[in-house]
């Protein structure tokens, strides 16, 4: 059985607290010798998910709950808020675009989820009126 470490972290929805979560993710990934790029990608995915929770969840407890599960070959991160849930138009980014800029492909907002999906190997989103959980997995690159 792979050596497994589980870490639970709750952060308040204060500015820059997503860095605390990102740091925890990076320490766990480095512990398992993930390469530098993977560590940065994990940090970015954690940051974007925590920012989405802070900006859009409208949760009353103003907290983000993060579970890290790291094994020798992958890191799983589960990020949960107890907010109002997210809608389909939020998931595809259309609700968050804001005003159109000079170039339609240079969308200013609503790109966080696109970044997470591009950088992680697996992404799953579960949402209900009681909250949202975004889970993602980064697999360790084989040499």
């Amino acid at each position: 059985m792979a050596d497994e470490h589980k870490v639970l972290l709750t952060i308040p929805m204060y500015p820059d607290m997503e860095l605390a979560a990102a740091k925890t993710g990076s320490v766990l990934a480095e512990l398992k010798d993930f390469n530098e790029d993977a560590v940065e990608e994990i940090q970015l995915a954690i940051i974007e998910t925590c920012i989405n929770a802070s900006e859009h969840s409208q949760s009353e407890d103003k907290e983000v709950h993060i579970q890290f599960l790291v094994t020798d070959d992958q890191l799983q991160v589960k990020i949960t808020d107890r907010g109002v849930g997210i809608t389909a138009d939020t998931l595809d980014g259309t609700r968050l675009l804001g005003t159109a800029g000079v170039h339609p492909d240079l969308r200013k907002r609503g790109r966080g989820l696109q970044i997470i999906k591009a950088l992680m190997d697996e992404v799953m989103i579960e949402s209900s009126p009681n909250g949202t959980t975004v889970s993602f997995t980064k697999k360790k690159a084989t040499e």
């Binding site: 990102a22 240079l106 200013k108 907002r109 790109r111």
Partner: peptide, 21 residues
Amino acid sequence: TTLINSIGISILIEIIEALEE
């Protein structure tokens, strides 16, 4: 700058647009 979030990127896009003008 080791980390850039999507809000930071949106601000960089605003600078690109201001320069294009």
